[in-house]
């Protein structure tokens, strides 16, 4: 797993307890919401709420620690902090709100839940610069041992790194997406809480990696914006293909929804078609919007780079900053 670079590993480390092994996602057939009372079905399992609160609290602590030293909006820009907050809110919407209950009933609702996790929450969280915040959230004496580890940063970036990392992450994301939609695995997730947790965890982690490569605050860790447009474009193509297969299939893939979808006046096949279409069109649109935004950033970058020809080469926050502080100072770099 050498393609997962240490700062990314830190991200994984902090995301792990988020969902792992607690059986918080609903399994199929438990307390089915009906059209009359669906809005009362909140997933209030203490473990889930606790973890969401812990992550959010941890981030806040880190951000405040940075800001108290450097001034508000310095180190971790306010936009990034706000994005993280919004990402947590979307996680809440996806995992706690009645949407979670609905996703046990309707394939299409489950699709919406997954898309919120992978395409809304994940980019917002990845943009939120969680790594520096989490590092700063640690007590000073714990931060100390991390310092030499991060100081070795210079050695991490092999020359082809910015090419191979995105390719590998692109493949991982594609693999996760396609493998988990195989009927056998998806059905297993519907029937078993742990498998369902694993599914959500894999989706969230791969998409955190996926968007992290595009949005990382460390310039050297993220791919070129222009290549990012192609990265999203090709992902949009294969994700659409999966959506198309779901939408056009003459058979129901996930038979467990066969019993529940009619409660909502949808034939099981229609429910599946809706799920496929949601993945295809709004999904593709989200990639398109993200790509457009990246592209706009890229254009702005070229303007800067051309007025100051040397600027593009000098990477902010290099060895001079040193230690774990580098992870923070680079956030100051040139982020919008």
């Amino acid at each position: 797993m050498s393609f997962i670079q240490p700062p990314v590993r830190i991200r994984i480390f902090f995301a792990l307890p988020l969902l792992m092994g607690t059986g918080i996602a609903r399994a199929h057939g438990e307390g089915l919401p009906d059209p009359g009372s669906w809005w009362r079905e909140w997933n209030t399992q203490p473990m889930l709420l606790l973890m969401l609160a812990a992550v959010w609290g941890f981030y806040t602590r880190g951000a405040l620690a940075v800001w108290s030293q450097a001034g508000v909006g310095r180190g971790i820009p306010t936009a990034r902090a706000a994005a993280f907050g919004a990402g947590m809110a979307v996680l809440f919407l996806a995992l706690v709100s009645p949407l979670d209950a609905m996703s046990a009933v309707l394939s299409s609702a489950h699709m919406v839940q997954h898309m919120l996790l992978m395409m809304v929450a994940a980019p917002l969280l990845a943009y939120g610069a969680p790594v520096p915040a989490f590092i700063w959230a640690l007590p000073a004496r714990w931060r100390q041992p991390l310092a030499p580890w991060i100081r070795r940063a210079e050695g991490w970036y092999a020359p082809g790194y910015r090419v191979w990392q995105p390719l590998a992450v692109w493949g991982l994301y594609a693999l996760a997406l396609w493998v988990w939609h195989m009927p056998a695995l998806y059905q297993a997730a519907l029937r078993d809480r742990l498998v369902h947790d694993a599914q959500h965890l894999v989706f969230l982690l791969t998409s955190l990696l996926f968007w992290g490569v595009l949005l990382d605050p460390l310039r050297r860790l993220r791919m070129s914006r222009g290549a990012g447009v192609l990265y999203l474009f090709t992902t949009c193509l294969h994700a659409s293909a999966l959506g198309i297969f779901l939408a056009l299939s003459p058979r129901v893939w996930y038979v467990d929804y066969g019993a529940t979808a009619p409660l909502w006046n949808l034939a099981p096949l229609e429910d599946q078609q809706l799920a496929g279409m949601i993945m295809w069109i709004p999904g593709c649109l989200l990639y398109a919007l993200a790509a457009t935004w990246l592209f706009a950033l890229w254009l702005r970058e070229t303007e800067d780079a051309s007025t100051l020809p040397g600027e593009a080469e000098a990477l902010p926050g290099s060895a001079a900053a040193g230690g774990w502080a580098a992870a923070v100072t680079v956030c100051e770099g040139g982020e919008p």
Partner: peptide
Amino acid sequence: IAIVLMGFLSFG
């Protein structure tokens, strides 16, 4: 930006 968006969307 409009051109890029147009190119992107046209495949969907």
